[in-house]
């Protein structure tokens, strides 16, 4: 699983039918010391996250195990948790 921050969303009317009810968010991927990287991903929202939220997301077949994506939805990444708080161990 990776950490990401929701920075935007994608509007699409012409898409594969299974994707109809899905919200498509743009994430900026953060590394484990919670600093932003240059990597961006588009994911399906599985938990009702909002813009500006920090989230956990997973890829590959794991993304298709959600109740939301059980019907074999052709996606490869999905948000599975919203991060409320985190504590970073200081490396001194």
């Amino acid at each position: 699983m990776l950490i990401g921050k929701v920075i935007g969303n994608i509007v699409s009317n012409a898409k594969v039918s299974e994707l109809k009810p899905m919200k498509l968010y743009i994430l900026q991927v953060y590394d484990y010391s919670f600093s932003p990287t240059e990597r961006y991903e588009v994911v399906v929202d599985g938990v009702g996250a909002g813009i500006g939220d920090y989230v956990l997301f997973c890829g590959g077949s794991a993304a298709r195990l959600l109740k939301l994506t059980e019907a074999g939805v052709p996606i490869d990444m999905a948000i599975i948790a919203r991060i409320d708080d985190f504590n970073k161990l200081k490396k001194d």
Partner: peptide
């Protein structure tokens, strides 16, 4: 899997 109409 989708045609993008708008990127916000």
């Amino acid at each position: 899997v989708a045609k993008i109409d708008k990127i916000n």
